[in-house]
């Protein structure tokens, strides 16, 4: 099995780097969000012929994250789930459930120290 490693990139480079992967025919596998103290780590995972590539960004709670839906249309579910669970917001989402993909009311269940 493949060894896990990732590359940390700046938020402003995200769309450029993802566009390059899309041009190389990578498939978007997942976006995994973790809260580390007051910051949030988003791990973007891509696959090409069963080989994975990971990009990581670190953001503050109030920082809008550019949506990947302009590059990968299907990213809307992954991003909406993160909005639901952590209360983060994605800019220019093609379908925005506004934090209510799974819950009838805004309730970021995975947010630690949620006050």
């Amino acid at each position: 099995m493949e060894k896990f490693s990732y590359k940390i990139i700046n938020l402003q480079d995200l769309l450029t780097q993802v566009k390059e992967l899309r041009e190389k025919k990578y498939r978007l596998v997942s976006i995994s969000c973790t809260q580390v103290e007051e910051k949030f780590e988003l791990l973007y995972t891509f696959d090409l012929n069963l080989s994975l590539k990971h990009l990581k960004i670190i953001v503050a709670k109030d920082t809008p994250i550019p949506s990947l839906t302009c590059i990968y249309e299907g990213a809307f579910l992954l991003e909406n789930e993160i909005q639901d669970q952590f209360g983060l917001s994605f800019a220019k989402l093609n379908i925005d459930y506004k934090g209510q993909l799974f819950y009838p009311e805004k309730n970021p269940l995975f947010l630690k120290n949620n006050k």
Binding site: V29, S30, S32, C33, T34, Q35, L43, T45, E73, G74, F76, L77, L78
Partner: peptide, 24 residues
């Protein structure tokens, strides 16, 4: 996706299931 801190509890477990990927 796993994130662990050396304790008996994981920091984070994230599961991206196949149907979730197939809905778009």
């Amino acid at each position: 996706y796993f994130k662990a801190n050396g304790s008996k509890f994981l920091d984070r477990l994230r599961i991206r299931t196949p149907t979730f990927a197939n809905v778009p």
